[in-house]
Nucleic acid binder design. Structure first.
Length: 361
DNA sequence: AACGCGAGCAACCGCTCCTCC
DNA sequence: GGGAGGAGCGGTTGCTCGCGT
Protein backbone atom coordinates (compact mmCIF):
# COMPACT_ATOMS: atom_id res chain seq x y z
CA UNK A 1 0.00 0.00 0.00
CA UNK A 2 1.44 3.31 -1.01
CA UNK A 3 1.27 6.69 0.61
CA UNK A 4 -1.14 9.44 -0.25
CA UNK A 5 0.13 11.89 -2.84
CA UNK A 6 2.22 14.76 -1.52
CA UNK A 7 -0.22 17.37 -2.71
CA UNK A 8 -3.20 17.81 -4.92
CA UNK A 9 -2.33 19.07 -8.34
CA UNK A 10 -5.50 21.12 -8.48
CA UNK A 11 -5.81 24.28 -6.48
CA UNK A 12 -2.09 24.61 -6.00
CA UNK A 13 -0.88 28.17 -6.15
CA UNK A 14 2.14 28.95 -8.27
CA UNK A 15 4.32 31.94 -8.76
CA UNK A 16 6.03 34.29 -6.36
CA UNK A 17 5.49 33.90 -2.64
CA UNK A 18 3.77 36.61 -0.67
CA UNK A 19 5.07 37.85 2.69
CA UNK A 20 2.04 36.34 4.37
CA UNK A 21 2.86 32.95 2.94
CA UNK A 22 6.47 33.34 3.98
CA UNK A 23 5.57 34.15 7.53
CA UNK A 24 3.09 31.32 7.77
CA UNK A 25 5.72 28.93 6.49
CA UNK A 26 8.41 30.27 8.80
CA UNK A 27 6.16 30.12 11.82
CA UNK A 28 5.21 26.57 11.00
CA UNK A 29 8.81 25.49 10.59
CA UNK A 30 9.78 27.28 13.77
CA UNK A 31 7.22 25.17 15.50
CA UNK A 32 7.62 21.84 13.81
CA UNK A 33 11.02 22.06 12.20
CA UNK A 34 11.83 21.45 8.56
CA UNK A 35 10.89 18.12 7.11
CA UNK A 36 7.60 16.37 6.58
CA UNK A 37 7.05 18.70 3.69
CA UNK A 38 4.09 16.70 2.58
CA UNK A 39 2.17 17.85 5.63
CA UNK A 40 3.16 21.48 5.41
CA UNK A 41 0.50 22.66 2.95
CA UNK A 42 -2.34 20.92 4.74
CA UNK A 43 -1.20 21.96 8.22
CA UNK A 44 -0.57 25.56 7.32
CA UNK A 45 -3.37 26.08 4.87
CA UNK A 46 -0.92 27.22 2.27
CA UNK A 47 -2.11 26.55 -1.24
CA UNK A 48 1.34 25.44 -2.22
CA UNK A 49 2.86 22.18 -3.23
CA UNK A 50 5.08 20.59 -0.60
CA UNK A 51 7.93 20.85 -3.03
CA UNK A 52 7.36 24.52 -3.37
CA UNK A 53 7.36 24.95 0.40
CA UNK A 54 10.61 23.09 0.75
CA UNK A 55 12.18 25.11 -2.01
CA UNK A 56 11.02 28.37 -0.54
CA UNK A 57 12.43 27.41 2.82
CA UNK A 58 15.77 26.13 1.60
CA UNK A 59 16.36 28.87 -0.93
CA UNK A 60 15.02 31.88 0.85
CA UNK A 61 13.72 31.54 4.38
CA UNK A 62 16.12 29.15 6.01
CA UNK A 63 18.34 30.64 8.73
CA UNK A 64 21.77 31.84 7.83
CA UNK A 65 21.19 32.60 4.20
CA UNK A 66 23.27 35.40 2.84
CA UNK A 67 21.98 37.28 -0.12
CA UNK A 68 23.50 39.85 -2.35
CA UNK A 69 26.83 40.09 -4.05
CA UNK A 70 29.25 37.24 -3.96
CA UNK A 71 32.65 38.08 -2.57
CA UNK A 72 35.79 37.37 -4.52
CA UNK A 73 36.55 34.67 -2.00
CA UNK A 74 33.23 33.01 -2.66
CA UNK A 75 33.74 33.31 -6.39
CA UNK A 76 37.06 31.57 -6.11
CA UNK A 77 35.61 28.82 -4.03
CA UNK A 78 32.79 28.28 -6.48
CA UNK A 79 35.16 28.14 -9.42
CA UNK A 80 37.43 25.72 -7.63
CA UNK A 81 34.66 23.52 -6.41
CA UNK A 82 32.90 23.57 -9.73
CA UNK A 83 36.08 22.44 -11.39
CA UNK A 84 36.36 19.69 -8.84
CA UNK A 85 32.77 18.58 -8.47
CA UNK A 86 31.14 19.68 -11.70
CA UNK A 87 27.61 21.01 -11.63
CA UNK A 88 26.79 19.44 -8.30
CA UNK A 89 25.48 22.62 -6.87
CA UNK A 90 24.19 21.11 -3.68
CA UNK A 91 27.62 19.69 -2.92
CA UNK A 92 29.22 23.01 -3.73
CA UNK A 93 26.67 24.80 -1.59
CA UNK A 94 27.56 22.60 1.35
CA UNK A 95 30.92 24.34 1.36
CA UNK A 96 29.25 27.73 1.20
CA UNK A 97 26.57 27.23 3.81
CA UNK A 98 25.33 30.78 3.57
CA UNK A 99 24.58 30.36 -0.09
CA UNK A 100 21.93 28.14 -1.56
CA UNK A 101 22.54 25.77 -4.40
CA UNK A 102 20.06 27.75 -6.45
CA UNK A 103 21.96 30.95 -5.73
CA UNK A 104 25.27 29.41 -6.65
CA UNK A 105 23.81 27.87 -9.76
CA UNK A 106 22.34 31.19 -10.83
CA UNK A 107 25.55 33.00 -10.07
CA UNK A 108 27.54 30.50 -12.05
CA UNK A 109 25.23 30.69 -15.02
CA UNK A 110 24.95 34.46 -15.04
CA UNK A 111 28.36 35.65 -13.90
CA UNK A 112 31.09 33.09 -13.67
CA UNK A 113 30.36 31.26 -16.89
CA UNK A 114 30.70 34.52 -18.75
CA UNK A 115 33.82 35.46 -16.88
CA UNK A 116 35.45 32.18 -17.64
CA UNK A 117 34.31 32.28 -21.24
CA UNK A 118 35.78 35.71 -21.74
CA UNK A 119 39.04 34.50 -20.26
CA UNK A 120 38.89 31.55 -22.59
CA UNK A 121 38.54 33.87 -25.54
CA UNK A 122 41.51 35.79 -24.31
CA UNK A 123 43.54 32.62 -24.41
CA UNK A 124 43.75 31.60 -20.78
CA UNK A 125 41.75 28.55 -21.49
CA UNK A 126 43.91 25.56 -20.72
CA UNK A 127 42.31 24.14 -17.63
CA UNK A 128 39.09 26.00 -17.88
CA UNK A 129 38.51 24.88 -21.42
CA UNK A 130 38.47 21.26 -20.38
CA UNK A 131 36.42 21.98 -17.31
CA UNK A 132 33.78 23.61 -19.40
CA UNK A 133 33.77 20.88 -21.95
CA UNK A 134 33.31 18.42 -19.17
CA UNK A 135 30.61 20.30 -17.38
CA UNK A 136 28.67 21.01 -20.50
CA UNK A 137 28.95 17.44 -21.60
CA UNK A 138 30.63 18.64 -24.73
CA UNK A 139 32.82 15.76 -25.67
CA UNK A 140 33.43 16.86 -29.22
CA UNK A 141 34.38 20.49 -28.92
CA UNK A 142 37.86 19.72 -27.74
CA UNK A 143 38.31 16.79 -30.04
CA UNK A 144 40.51 18.70 -32.44
CA UNK A 145 42.97 19.64 -29.77
CA UNK A 146 42.67 16.31 -28.04
CA UNK A 147 43.37 14.43 -31.21
CA UNK A 148 46.75 16.03 -31.22
CA UNK A 149 47.52 14.81 -27.78
CA UNK A 150 49.08 11.42 -27.50
CA UNK A 151 47.93 8.96 -24.92
CA UNK A 152 50.91 9.65 -22.74
CA UNK A 153 50.29 13.34 -22.92
CA UNK A 154 46.64 12.82 -22.15
CA UNK A 155 47.49 10.77 -19.08
CA UNK A 156 49.96 13.37 -17.89
CA UNK A 157 47.38 16.02 -18.44
CA UNK A 158 44.78 14.04 -16.58
CA UNK A 159 47.16 13.63 -13.68
CA UNK A 160 47.82 17.34 -13.73
CA UNK A 161 44.12 18.02 -13.77
CA UNK A 162 43.54 15.74 -10.83
CA UNK A 163 46.34 17.38 -8.95
CA UNK A 164 45.04 20.82 -9.78
CA UNK A 165 41.61 19.79 -8.61
CA UNK A 166 43.10 18.57 -5.35
CA UNK A 167 44.90 21.85 -4.97
CA UNK A 168 41.67 23.60 -5.61
CA UNK A 169 39.84 21.76 -2.91
CA UNK A 170 42.77 22.15 -0.53
CA UNK A 171 42.68 25.84 -1.11
CA UNK A 172 38.96 26.00 -0.89
CA UNK A 173 39.04 24.17 2.41
CA UNK A 174 41.78 26.30 3.79
CA UNK A 175 40.22 29.53 2.63
CA UNK A 176 37.00 28.55 4.20
CA UNK A 177 36.52 28.35 7.93
CA UNK A 178 35.79 24.67 8.05
CA UNK A 179 35.74 23.06 11.49
CA UNK A 180 38.72 20.92 10.72
CA UNK A 181 40.55 23.77 9.16
CA UNK A 182 43.51 24.94 11.16
CA UNK A 183 44.95 27.30 8.65
CA UNK A 184 44.72 31.03 9.06
CA UNK A 185 42.50 32.75 6.58
CA UNK A 186 43.28 36.29 5.73
CA UNK A 187 41.47 38.86 7.84
CA UNK A 188 39.91 40.26 4.72
CA UNK A 189 38.38 36.93 3.93
CA UNK A 190 37.27 36.39 7.47
CA UNK A 191 34.47 38.75 6.75
CA UNK A 192 31.37 38.52 8.90
CA UNK A 193 29.66 36.99 5.93
CA UNK A 194 31.37 33.70 6.68
CA UNK A 195 31.07 33.15 10.38
CA UNK A 196 31.35 29.77 12.01
CA UNK A 197 27.86 30.09 13.28
CA UNK A 198 24.83 31.99 12.20
CA UNK A 199 21.67 33.07 13.89
CA UNK A 200 18.04 33.18 13.03
CA UNK A 201 18.28 36.94 12.89
CA UNK A 202 19.45 36.75 9.34
CA UNK A 203 16.30 34.98 8.40
CA UNK A 204 14.26 37.53 10.22
CA UNK A 205 16.17 40.13 8.32
CA UNK A 206 15.19 38.48 5.09
CA UNK A 207 11.58 38.61 6.03
CA UNK A 208 11.88 42.13 7.36
CA UNK A 209 13.34 43.31 4.09
CA UNK A 210 10.71 41.40 2.25
CA UNK A 211 7.95 42.97 4.26
CA UNK A 212 9.51 46.36 3.90
CA UNK A 213 9.60 46.02 0.16
CA UNK A 214 6.17 44.60 0.08
CA UNK A 215 4.70 47.36 2.17
CA UNK A 216 6.60 49.91 0.16
CA UNK A 217 4.98 48.61 -2.97
CA UNK A 218 1.63 47.94 -1.44
CA UNK A 219 -1.05 50.62 -1.85
CA UNK A 220 -2.25 49.78 1.66
CA UNK A 221 1.01 50.91 3.19
CA UNK A 222 -0.57 54.22 4.06
CA UNK A 223 -1.96 52.59 7.17
CA UNK A 224 1.50 52.77 8.65
CA UNK A 225 1.97 56.07 10.43
CA UNK A 226 5.59 55.47 11.21
CA UNK A 227 8.43 54.80 8.87
CA UNK A 228 9.83 52.34 11.34
CA UNK A 229 6.76 50.34 12.18
CA UNK A 230 4.87 48.28 9.71
CA UNK A 231 1.81 46.27 10.50
CA UNK A 232 0.53 43.38 8.49
CA UNK A 233 -2.65 41.57 9.32
CA UNK A 234 -2.59 37.85 9.05
CA UNK A 235 -4.99 35.01 9.35
CA UNK A 236 -3.04 33.10 11.90
CA UNK A 237 -2.04 34.52 15.23
CA UNK A 238 1.50 35.49 14.70
CA UNK A 239 3.62 38.30 15.99
CA UNK A 240 7.04 39.23 14.87
CA UNK A 241 9.19 42.13 15.81
CA UNK A 242 9.77 44.31 18.82
CA UNK A 243 8.82 43.23 22.28
CA UNK A 244 6.32 46.02 22.45
CA UNK A 245 4.30 44.60 19.61
CA UNK A 246 0.56 44.54 19.82
CA UNK A 247 -1.34 41.60 21.15
CA UNK A 248 -0.68 38.45 19.18
CA UNK A 249 -4.21 37.35 19.68
CA UNK A 250 -5.31 40.07 17.34
CA UNK A 251 -3.61 38.32 14.50
CA UNK A 252 -1.21 41.13 13.90
CA UNK A 253 2.31 41.06 12.69
CA UNK A 254 4.48 43.88 13.85
CA UNK A 255 7.66 44.42 12.00
CA UNK A 256 10.06 47.00 13.26
CA UNK A 257 12.21 47.86 10.35
CA UNK A 258 15.90 48.38 10.74
CA UNK A 259 17.56 47.95 14.07
CA UNK A 260 14.55 46.78 15.94
CA UNK A 261 13.89 43.88 13.68
CA UNK A 262 17.51 43.03 13.30
CA UNK A 263 17.95 42.71 16.97
CA UNK A 264 14.90 40.73 17.83
CA UNK A 265 12.74 38.19 16.17
CA UNK A 266 9.91 36.52 17.93
CA UNK A 267 6.77 34.76 17.00
CA UNK A 268 3.72 33.69 18.82
CA UNK A 269 1.79 30.74 17.62
CA UNK A 270 -1.84 30.30 18.39
CA UNK A 271 -1.38 26.59 18.69
CA UNK A 272 0.80 26.32 21.73
CA UNK A 273 1.26 29.91 22.70
CA UNK A 274 4.97 29.42 22.96
CA UNK A 275 6.95 32.49 22.14
CA UNK A 276 10.52 32.21 21.03
CA UNK A 277 12.72 35.25 20.97
CA UNK A 278 15.95 35.21 19.09
CA UNK A 279 18.33 38.04 19.61
CA UNK A 280 21.20 39.27 17.50
CA UNK A 281 23.68 36.95 19.09
CA UNK A 282 21.65 33.89 18.37
CA UNK A 283 20.30 33.59 21.90
CA UNK A 284 16.76 32.40 22.09
CA UNK A 285 14.41 32.08 24.94
CA UNK A 286 10.85 31.15 25.70
CA UNK A 287 9.26 33.15 28.50
CA UNK A 288 6.90 30.33 29.17
CA UNK A 289 9.42 27.81 30.33
CA UNK A 290 12.54 29.89 30.59
CA UNK A 291 14.28 27.65 28.16
CA UNK A 292 17.15 29.55 26.75
CA UNK A 293 20.11 28.68 24.66
CA UNK A 294 22.12 29.45 21.63
CA UNK A 295 20.55 28.84 18.28
CA UNK A 296 23.45 28.02 16.05
CA UNK A 297 23.98 26.75 12.61
CA UNK A 298 27.11 24.72 12.23
CA UNK A 299 28.61 25.86 9.04
CA UNK A 300 30.47 22.97 7.46
CA UNK A 301 30.38 20.87 5.45
CA UNK A 302 26.83 19.60 5.32
CA UNK A 303 23.92 21.88 5.91
CA UNK A 304 22.10 21.08 9.08
CA UNK A 305 18.37 20.84 9.37
CA UNK A 306 16.63 21.94 12.49
CA UNK A 307 13.80 20.66 14.50
CA UNK A 308 12.17 22.56 17.27
CA UNK A 309 10.33 20.81 20.00
CA UNK A 310 7.51 22.30 21.97
CA UNK A 311 9.90 23.81 24.46
CA UNK A 312 11.61 25.86 21.88
CA UNK A 313 14.70 23.73 21.82
CA UNK A 314 16.21 23.57 18.42
CA UNK A 315 17.87 20.36 17.44
CA UNK A 316 20.20 19.93 14.61
CA UNK A 317 19.60 17.18 12.12
CA UNK A 318 22.18 16.15 9.62
CA UNK A 319 21.07 15.70 6.09
CA UNK A 320 21.40 12.11 5.10
CA UNK A 321 22.58 12.74 1.65
CA UNK A 322 25.07 9.98 1.23
CA UNK A 323 25.96 11.11 -2.23
CA UNK A 324 27.29 14.44 -1.10
CA UNK A 325 28.38 13.73 2.40
CA UNK A 326 30.48 10.64 2.18
CA UNK A 327 32.48 11.39 -0.95
CA UNK A 328 33.33 14.86 0.25
CA UNK A 329 34.39 13.63 3.64
CA UNK A 330 36.58 11.03 2.05
CA UNK A 331 37.97 13.62 -0.28
CA UNK A 332 38.77 15.86 2.62
CA UNK A 333 40.56 13.08 4.45
CA UNK A 334 42.38 12.12 1.34
CA UNK A 335 43.45 15.65 0.71
CA UNK A 336 44.44 16.35 4.26
CA UNK A 337 46.48 13.17 4.52
CA UNK A 338 48.05 13.77 1.20
CA UNK A 339 48.70 17.35 2.09
CA UNK A 340 50.91 16.38 4.97
CA UNK A 341 52.99 14.10 2.83
CA UNK A 342 53.38 16.58 0.05
CA UNK A 343 53.55 19.77 1.99
CA UNK A 344 56.64 21.12 0.29
CA UNK A 345 55.57 20.23 -3.21
CA UNK A 346 52.15 21.66 -2.59
CA UNK A 347 53.53 24.97 -1.43
CA UNK A 348 55.07 25.31 -4.79
CA UNK A 349 52.07 24.06 -6.70
CA UNK A 350 49.69 26.08 -4.61
CA UNK A 351 51.47 29.14 -5.78
CA UNK A 352 50.92 28.08 -9.33
CA UNK A 353 47.29 27.24 -8.72
CA UNK A 354 46.69 30.55 -7.03
CA UNK A 355 48.39 32.51 -9.73
CA UNK A 356 46.31 30.67 -12.30
CA UNK A 357 43.24 31.55 -10.35
CA UNK A 358 44.31 35.13 -10.14
CA UNK A 359 44.52 35.15 -13.90
CA UNK A 360 40.84 34.50 -14.03
CA UNK A 361 40.10 37.87 -12.58
C1' DA B 1 7.99 58.75 -23.23
C1' DA B 2 7.92 54.41 -25.43
C1' DC B 3 9.99 50.44 -26.85
C1' DG B 4 13.33 46.69 -27.15
C1' DC B 5 16.80 44.04 -25.21
C1' DG B 6 19.55 41.73 -21.94
C1' DA B 7 20.73 40.50 -17.13
C1' DG B 8 19.44 38.63 -12.90
C1' DC B 9 16.84 35.77 -10.12
C1' DA B 10 12.88 33.20 -8.10
C1' DA B 11 10.34 29.42 -9.01
C1' DC B 12 8.90 25.39 -11.64
C1' DC B 13 9.73 20.92 -13.96
C1' DG B 14 11.33 16.52 -14.42
C1' DC B 15 14.42 13.18 -13.10
C1' DT B 16 16.89 10.15 -9.69
C1' DC B 17 17.62 8.15 -5.41
C1' DC B 18 15.99 6.86 -0.98
C1' DT B 19 12.56 5.46 2.29
C1' DC B 20 8.46 3.47 3.68
C1' DC B 21 4.54 0.32 3.45
C1' DG C 1 11.41 -7.82 -2.33
C1' DG C 2 8.72 -4.75 -4.97
C1' DG C 3 6.12 -0.77 -5.73
C1' DA C 4 4.71 3.84 -4.54
C1' DG C 5 5.62 8.12 -2.75
C1' DG C 6 8.89 11.59 -0.60
C1' DA C 7 12.91 14.27 -0.77
C1' DG C 8 16.50 16.28 -3.14
C1' DC C 9 18.91 17.87 -7.14
C1' DG C 10 20.04 20.08 -11.59
C1' DG C 11 18.20 22.21 -15.69
C1' DT C 12 15.15 25.38 -17.47
C1' DT C 13 11.69 28.90 -17.72
C1' DG C 14 9.52 33.15 -17.20
C1' DC C 15 9.02 37.38 -14.79
C1' DT C 16 10.98 41.83 -13.37
C1' DC C 17 13.97 45.51 -13.67
C1' DG C 18 17.45 48.45 -15.57
C1' DC C 19 19.62 50.39 -19.43
C1' DG C 20 20.16 51.97 -24.08
C1' DT C 21 18.09 53.68 -28.29
Amino acid sequence: MGRPPCCEKTGVKKGPWTPEEDIILVSYIQEHGPGNWRNVPSNTGLLRCSKSCRLRWTNYLRPGIKRGNFTEHEEKMIIHLQALLGNRWAAIASYLPQRTDNDIKNYWNTHLKKKLNSKKVEGHDDGIHDEKNQQEGNSTSSSSSQSKISKGQWERRLQTDIHTAKQALCEALSLDSAPNNKNNPTPEEQQPAVPTSTTYASSAENIAKLLQNWMKNSPKSSSSNSSKITQVSLNNNLSMGAASSSSPSEGTVNVTAGQGLDSLFSFNSSNNNSEVSVDEGGNFSTPENNNAGIFQVESKPILPDFKADNNGNFQEERKQNVDTQVPLTLLEKWLLDDANAQAEQEDHLMGIALSETADLF
